[in-house]
Design a protein around this nucleic acid. Structure first.
Lengths: 115, 115
DNA sequence: CCGCATCCCGATAGATACTG
DNA sequence: CAGTATCTATCGGGATGCGG
């Protein structure tokens, strides 16, 4: 079976990015990859995100069954977010992206040093 | 050495997405993963992209040394695009994304069948 | 603390027409 | 064929204020 047909690959990649589209979703998932987090913790962790964006991106991810939202009846209320089992299948994707990012940063640093 | 620190991962993922940001870049790279292509071939392959977007996204990818642009002195002129050696290092990333997309599509189809 | 509603602006994408 | 120019529509996303 030939998976590596170009058109097939394009469609598949498109499907994935459709779920992960938007400026913050990938970072949100990356943040939740190893631990559940509360709303305010997420906002602290993800540099530059506003409450509005965090809220709407979380909602979309929840809609796609990638994460679970749990309201804790504390005073005041707190909300925990964690990846679902399905969301965890993205862990490998995130790790691959992170690996490349680390190499890429080294590459950039090297280029600057060459000047 | 602990790579799986959350903050480190977030930064690395962000670095990668910084290079791949925009609606079309990932699909362009996916299209070029297995073969060089001409401008019009790319436009045919990538569903819905306009010449303007293709042009500007290609320019940014070239700027980041991910692909190489070759003008062929045919009549009329043709231009070939191909991934650089550095761009090819993204192949694994693309494949991981494609794999997940394929699984995800099955998942969606399954959910619809459940109704 | 969490997060919705509203207003607003600038960036970006798309359509269309044009050029070497 | 491989783009560029221009115009317009759309959308991301910030600021602020409110409510549970």
């Amino acid at each position: 079976m030939k998976i590596k047909c170009c058109k097939t690959n394009l469609m598949a990649v498109h499907d994935t990015m459709d779920v992960l589209k938007g400026r913050w979703k990938i970072q949100i998932i990356a943040a939740l990859c190893y631990d559940k987090m509360r709303f305010s913790e997420l906002q602290k962790e993800i540099d530059g995100i506003s409450a509005k964006m965090l809220s709407s991106e979380l909602k979309e991810l929840e809609f796609n069954h990638l994460l679970k939202r749990t309201v804790l009846q504390t005073q005041p209320i707190t909300v925990e977010y964690e990846l679902t089992e399905y969301g965890l299948t993205l862990k490998k994707v995130i790790e691959t992206l992170a690996d490349w990012g680390i190499k890429h940063r080294k590459q950039i640093v090297g280029e600057i040093a060459d000047n």
